[in-house]
Design a protein around this nucleic acid. Structure first.
Lengths: 257, 257
DNA sequence: CTCGCCGTTGCATTATCTGCAACGGCCATT
DNA sequence: AATGGCCGTTGCAGATAATGCAACGGCGAG
């Protein structure tokens, strides 16, 4: 909607690929070098872009700080965290919390496994949306048209032989997930890793987040992991209760200066 | 340098404080509502801002993804990570990696303690620069004018009785740190937590990062932690060697379209 | 020593952004 | 049920601010 801002923001994903110098930025934006320079300078003043010693630009530290603050301001996360910790203490495995936003699912909290073998994941990283248990729960609850539109334009990468292969299969799976109220990922993302997940609902019953327990085959079999399902669901329901009670659409903003 | 972009980017820290509606954003920017709307829309298109169900705006998921990619592109991090893991396996405590950028020090990697009592910290979070051991190392190596300018405009919050109280004391400490080539934080940030840290240097000898081992008093005393110093320094030196060898100012960019 | 590349600057042009005013939906109030 | 006010949204004309150009200077390579 605003050309100048649009151009400036287009620089960010470009730099996310790796450092670039002024000429490269200008070329990829399709603007004059002087224009690119002014945009980069503005981004720099705000700390979103950093100029390293070799004069090339890369993304800046402020991005981390912003991402950090965003996360800490998410009220679901705050409410859920102690429950995740408790569940982790009870079962010992890695516990994740995830939310949906604009076609993506991302982890917003994580409590690490106590076992030495850990699965790789990082808070803030977009989740493999076609296979992850938490993603299935979040997508299953979308209004039908949105769900349809999304599943249509998704890719279905075959991480393993058990990955969801295409849109129709995925839609069927989502249907089932929605009805049973829980989801699994049995080696669909990484051959040797299984997850069980349960939904967290707001006061209106809509799914606002999902949590999961993940563990590699070498620690527990898929069957053993499934026995944890009741525990996971109880945790999720407890969070749902607190969340519905405390924060329907409340606004704790206090700055009427 | 560019007014429009400047205004748009000013929205981000504003939203980092918490969700806000159009009117609030416009007011705090000092612009007309229609202007604020156009800026927010542009930010939204790029995923930096998200519009929640109650129509208010908050920071968006793309921020996480960008922060994530930035981090993973840092070559020091990549080189250092296995060393951090090895050090953690050897001593069991929390290991951090930090860099300096534009007046701030931030953690860019972390391997969690194996002990149940863990110190709080998060990757991406700016470090308490006047007390953290890694910060001392990074600031001690700055060129004198920059170091002076920075220490002058810093705050010196008294987290504990052993926090660095003011600029002169801090400068003396930095002097000592630079000469001895390592640093500590003995309860200067949190009463019961101690750290020992060592610098990682580039090919030209400049400090490019710093790593530390942290542990609470209840697990090991400060004296015991200090016995780990040689190990920490060996790790840091090993990383320095690899980093100098592999990446002086190399550019792995491959896109001359 | 010289050539060429890259980042940088001042300036005139013109495109772009801004504020205004008016509309419409929604919620709360009477 | 009707009404008033609030908030987000849109089209438009004026004015400001962004753009590309051309020229400079520093730096490294040949």
């Amino acid at each position: 909607m605003s050309q100048t801002v649009d151009r400036a923001l287009s620089i960010l994903p470009l730099l996310a690929e790796g450092p670039a110098d002024l000429g490269q930025v200008a070329e990829r934006l399709g603007v004059h070098k002087s224009t690119a320079l002014r945009l980069l300078r503005t981004l720099h003043e705000h700390g979103l872009v950093y100029r390293q010693s070799d004069q090339r630009y890369r993304l800046g530290a402020r991005l981390f700080a912003l991402a950090q603050e965003t996360m800490e301001n998410l009220d679901i996360r705050e409410i859920a965290h102690p429950h995740l910790v408790r569940l982790n203490e009870a079962c010992g495995h890695t516990v994740h919390l995830a939310v949906y936003e604009e076609g993506e699912v991302l982890y917003i909290d994580k409590v690490e496994s106590r076992y030495p073998v850990r699965m790789y994941s990082r808070i803030g990283k977009p989740v493999a949306v076609t296979v992850a248990a938490v993603a299935k729960l979040l997508l299953a609850d979308l209004p039908e048209p949105e769900r349809r539109a999304l599943t249509d334009k998704l890719d279905y990468p075959l991480y393993t032989a058990r990955s969801t292969p295409n849109a129709p299969a995925f839609l069927r799976e989502l249907e089932q997930v929605r009805e049973q109220g829980w989801a699994t990922d049995l080696g669909g993302h990484e051959e040797s890793i299984n997850c069980v997940a349960a939904p967290i609902r707001g006061a209106d019953g809509r799914v606002v987040a999902a949590m999961s327990v993940s563990a590699p085959n070498v620690v527990v079999t898929a069957e053993e992991l499934l026995t944890l399902l009741p525990q996971v669901r109880r945790s999720a329901d407890a969070i749902s209760g607190e969340y519905s009670g405390r924060t329907p659409v409340t606004d704790p903003t206090r700055d009427l200066a």
